[in-house]
């Protein structure tokens, strides 16, 4: 279980929020409310104060790398730095490619040769490849057509059904069953 006892950042605050294994959250709020900020704080990528625990272990009792290997942040904008797409994965992702409607042959290509929608779906697979306990997915369906969006949502649902914890920002109402959290005036609370 992920327990946010308190999370204080200059622009957002969260207090006493829980996320159980196999549970997904739909983080809602208007543009600029701080949704991405919260996700990056949860992954300890931005300075924040307070206390969070994952399976009873405090974030501060773990190295940042240990924490980020469990709480993985997948950004809206995806970035690549190695020559081939496949080079960015720790495990062979070929069997997983079809789940989001991607041809495994794309893995041999340079990231720049893929369309933005293909890169976006591949970035989600790259985050899942790290086998996270908590996946903080920031608009993983932005700019995708209806068919691709449905595949991505199904893949996220499969992650949750296998016991993963998902915190998702999504500009449309997602089709998968998620508990709503809302950010209003910098405060995060159950909707």
């Amino acid at each position: 279980m992920l327990h946010i006892h308190s999370l204080q950042h200059a622009l957002i605050q969260a207090r006493d929020l829980h996320l159980d294994a196999g549970q997904g959250i739909h983080l809602q709020g208007p543009s600029g409310a701080g949704k991405s900020l919260l996700l990056r704080c949860l992954a300890d990528l931005l300075p924040w104060q307070g206390e969070m625990e994952l399976h009873g272990r405090s974030v501060w009792a773990q190295t940042p790398v240990q924490w980020r290997r469990q709480v993985v942040y997948c950004s809206t904008e995806n970035h690549w730095w190695l020559p081939r797409c496949a080079d960015h994965f720790l495990h062979d992702p070929r069997t997983d490619m079809d789940s989001v409607g991607l041809d495994p042959a794309l893995l041999e290509r340079a990231p720049a040769q893929l369309s933005s929608g293909q890169r976006q779906r591949l970035a989600l697979l790259r985050a899942l490849d790290r086998q996270p306990t908590v996946l903080c997915a920031d608009e993983p369906c932005a700019n995708l057509d209806d068919h691709s969006r449905a595949r991505v949502e199904a893949r996220l649902e499969a992650f949750v059904q296998r016991g993963g914890m998902l915190i998702l920002t999504h500009h449309q109402k997602p089709s998968l069953p998620l508990t709503p959290w809302r950010i209003e005036n910098g405060r995060v609370h159950h909707a």
């Binding site: 940042p64 790398v65 993985v72 690549w80 730095w81």
Partner: peptide, 15 residues
């Protein structure tokens, strides 16, 4: 120039 790449790598669990 490459802040976004560095942060992506951190987010994926690299030190």
């Amino acid at each position: 120039q490459q802040a976004a790449i560095v942060e992506t790598r951190l987010a994926l669990g690299e030190d």
